[in-house]
């Protein structure tokens, strides 16, 4: 079977600093990583391939340096990497991103065979919308399975798949027809370490680099800034609370006394709370 995994290269947010004066994000020197949520999608795709055979194509849209992310994925075991990169894509919001990625998936299908499953991560750590997956599904008419915790069964002959997904208030077990789009829930598997041959192959592998035209995108007005209905108007830092916390002196006092003090202040600030607690306590 053919599986496509969409991965995004993101700045390692643990290392992002905000400029204290200009409030802009200081990206210089910040290392990039594969969006951590996408690794669960990649691992699940590789497991599926190991089970039923076939190929895994990883796809990313981003600047030329996003090639690194694809190479990393190849080193983990993916078969092929496609980089979608073009100045037309700059400034894409989720609608424009899902348009471009959907077109690229279509082209990947024409080139190497239509994918039975397309995977995305649950969300990105920079965009953080969880909307690109559903957007791709809708545009390609794929059956949408979000927040998937496990793939319970796949039957390529019958063209069906059964999954367990996180739903509101419980776990929903669904079956649907292929082709399907799966957004993988985090913590559901553990990304493998690439084998030595994979790592060596990845270093030399040829990455497919596509611009809009190569991906078969003629409607560039649907891409990038122009294809994005949303606009970022203002970026700003959260305002600090005017007053610092009122302090309860704890030094050189027994903990019992401090605790009494804290309790009294809680009840002073929340006069109804003591009575409420009493009611709950009486119910014990």
């Amino acid at each position: 079977m053919h599986i496509v995994v969409c991965i995004k290269q993101v700045p390692d947010s643990a290392q992002i600093r905000v400029h204290p004066v200009t409030n802009t994000i200081m990206r210089q020197g910040v290392p990039t990583i594969i969006n951590p949520y996408d690794l669960f999608a990649l691992e699940e795709a590789l497991r599926l391939r190991d089970k039923v055979g076939g190929e895994v194509t990883v796809l990313t849209m981003g600047p030329p340096m996003a090639e690194d992310a694809l190479r990393k994925a190849l080193g983990i075991g993916a078969n092929r990497g496609v980089l979608l990169t073009d100045r037309f894509f700059a400034g894409s919001d989720t609608l424009a991103t899902s348009f471009a990625l959907a077109q690229a998936v279509r082209k990947i299908g024409e080139t190497w065979g239509a994918p039975e499953v397309v995977f995305t991560g649950k969300q990105t750590i920079d965009g953080d919308t969880a909307q690109v997956g559903p957007g791709i599904a809708r545009r390609l008419g794929l059956n949408q399975l979000t927040y998937v915790a496990a793939i319970n069964a796949i039957d390529l002959e019958a063209g069906t798949i059964a999954v367990a997904r996180r739903a509101e208030g419980g776990v929903q077990e669904l079956s649907t027809k292929l082709p399907a789009l799966i957004t993988m829930l985090e913590g559901t598997n553990e990304i493998r370490r690439g084998t030595v041959p994979d790592v060596l192959r990845a270093a030399r592998a040829k990455i497919e680099v596509w611009n809009a035209a190569a991906a078969g995108i003629t409607e560039v007005g649907m891409c990038g800034l122009r294809g994005s209905p949303t606009v970022v108007k203002r970026v700003f830092a959260p305002t600090p609370r005017a007053a610092k916390a009122e302090q309860v002196e704890a030094k050189d006092r027994p903990y019992e006394a401090v605790a009494e003090d804290v309790m009294e202040r809680i009840f002073a600030a929340q006069p109804a709370m003591e009575a409420e607690l009493m009611r709950t306590a009486a119910g014990y």
């Binding site: 953080d128 919308t129 909307q131 559903p134 957007g135 979000t146 509101e168």
Partner: peptide
């Protein structure tokens, strides 16, 4: 922005081609 809301909002926004701001 629950699992249901996010699952649904992305599909509808893409179908009617409008902007969606998450979370």
């Amino acid at each position: 922005a629950t699992v249901l809301g996010r699952d649904l909002a992305g599909s509808v926004a893409t179908t009617v081609l409008t902007g969606l701001t998450a979370d």
